[in-house]
């Protein structure tokens, strides 16, 4: 039995019918076509599907879509505003923090949550905030650098 789901995604009101067992990740990717949110593990261990739910970073593979009812979801597609890149996106690009790019959306979202709460984090605070987002390409070096650069540009 499908159920009604109303939520805000990247600032837009969305109404749709979903099966109760669907995760937020599945609804974002399969129903709304927001494939920037990646699927890397299905058991809340890689961080590639991280989105902001009412400003808090959550793993969208680990949340039922219906639990997001009435809430505000931000995915990587919603980071840039009016054609302007978010400072984190800009820093990731300029610092070479993106290689294969599969972990990038989740990294950006986790980093955004950090900077929203703590605009001037220490290196250790950055590392702690991103420790749930796995990356196999960068050794994290340029990602940490990029988040620090973005925090200074704010």
């Amino acid at each position: 039995m499908k159920k009604m789901l109303e939520l805000t995604v990247n600032g837009q009101q969305v109404n749709l019918e979903v099966e109760p067992q669907r995760t937020l990740q599945e609804v974002l990717r399969d129903e709304l076509g927001l494939t920037g949110t990646k699927r890397g593990c299905d058991d809340a261990s890689c961080g590639a599907c991280t989105v902001l739910l009412n400003g808090k970073a959550v793993l969208s593979c680990n949340i039922l879509a219906l639990d997001a009812r009435g809430k505000d979801v931000l995915t990587v597609e919603g980071l840039a505003k009016n054609g302007q890149l978010h400072p984190l996106q800009k820093a990731f690009i300029e610092r070479g923090a993106i290689q294969c790019g599969f972990c990038t959306p989740g990294m950006l979202i986790s980093a955004k949550e950090l900077l929203d709460k703590n605009p001037k984090p220490t290196e250790l605070e950055v590392r702690e905030a991103l420790s749930g987002n796995l990356c196999r390409c960068t050794g994290y070096a340029k990602i940490i650098e990029a988040v620090e650069a973005a925090s200074q540009s704010k």
């Binding site: 494939t35 920037g36 070479g96 993106i98 790019g101």
Partner: peptide
Amino acid sequence: KSIPRVDSLPKALGTARFFDDMA
């Protein structure tokens, strides 16, 4: 030159399509 990669923009925007993103 250490110029940013051309492919990093679509990857930062979330628009780069991996096989599983195709329908």
